[in-house]
Write a protein that binds this DNA or RNA. Structure first.
Lengths: 216, 216
DNA sequence: TCCCTATGAATGAAAG
DNA sequence: CTTTCATTCATAGGGA
């Protein structure tokens, strides 16, 4: 049952944290791109483990939640959206003043995934479909989706050209500006499979979870 | 418990996260500790955010669970039976320690001067040049310059209209801003902080473990 | 220690 | 699509 949570798991988690403090020395100020960090295999492994721990935790929580909600899901509370419901105000105030759409974590995750899939500009039809799906996770309109993609793309682009722009004083421009989709990033040493993130909405719908795949 | 400090920051953190095509795994090989990875600041940031995403997910799941189980015991004893307690201090998880650029006096002076010159719109090219110049007076990136102008202009404008504020009437009601005390953070109904999590030191202590210890 | 203000940064939406 | 605007978030720094 839900009480099956292993405390030991916690212990284990905690034990994994014995990192190395130190490191920020010369790079204290955050100007992007010019500096690089160096990680040893060991550090990478540690990092990987920490993330794996999160994966596990999420997994278990999700499981727990499913059990719970299964045995009692008849109350007035909707479990689906635990993100901000635009109509429920806190402290009783401006119920309707939210003018700007704010993606819920789930929505964002989905959008991000679609975006990542490369198919740059989703056509009208797709947007419509997507909106349909996203609606299940909160208020959203097609315009929101459209704007989101527009912005996402524009910013992604800008950011990229900015990153590769740092030391380009000597050389004209390497290959910074490529006609390909921004789907391609310079080099992503650490690439997490966000399918695991999908898990967040899994507790709601998709029973299948992709927690095991952290193949980076 | 009177002067809590609200904190909500996950919302944003959750935002831009992964978007990388996965490629060489890099870490899987066990060729001894001599192998090192080089990461750019950007990549580091990305990693941070990815982890932060997990943190958030865990938080939310935990919260959801708590809501569920709490509901089982008794009824809405909590304020208004909101399933989410929007405000509540949390120990303050510094998941992402984003450093922020601070203009040096010289830089500021230069920027201010440019701004004064009226050319309100520093086109891209100019920004680039300006950045080049400013770099001689301290770390700075084009983004910084860009942001600076954006903010400078926006705030300048706002301040102006603020001064001309005539509708101090009680009924004017130009905007329906929250009646609760001014300083209270806006609705962060969305971000479930992990205070509850810590408060009961329940099953996990996820939030901090992820990043708190990994302060590279 | 706590709260407030100033301001760098993020981002939805709109204009161009 | 690209650039700009408006609003909001988050944090550094100051004051009591």
């Amino acid at each position: 049952m839900m009480g099956e949570w292993r405390q030991q798991q916690q212990q284990q988690i905690i034990n994994q944290n014995l990192q190395n403090p130190e490191e920020d020395d010369g790079v204290g100020n955050g100007n992007g791109g010019l500096f690089v960090k160096v990680m040893t295999d060991e550090q990478m492994e540690q990092l990987r483990q920490q993330i794996a721990v999160y994966t596990t935790i999420c997994d278990q929580l999700v499981d727990l939640h499913k059990q719970l909600s299964a045995q009692q899901d008849l109350t007035g509370m909707r479990l689906g959206n635990f993100y901000c419901d635009p109509f429920m105000a806190s402290g009783g105030h401006k119920i309707t003043s939210r003018q700007r759409w704010t993606p819920s974590p789930v929505q964002l995750q989905i959008l991000e995934q679609i975006f990542e899939e490369g198919n740059g500009t989703p056509c009208k039809q797709k947007i419509k479909e997507l909106t349909m799906e996203l609606t299940q996770h909160g208020q959203i309109s097609e315009t929101n989706v459209y704007n989101w993609f527009q912005n996402r793309r524009a910013r992604s682009k800008r950011k990229q050209s900015m990153t590769a722009q740092n030391n380009a004083e000597s050389e004209a421009e390497p290959e910074v500006e490529s006609p390909r989709d921004e789907k391609t990033k310079p080099e992503d040493i650490l690439s997490f499979d966000n399918s695991a993130l999908r898990a967040e909405n899994m507790y709601l719908q998709s029973p299948e979870l992709g927690f095991g795949n952290f193949d980076w």
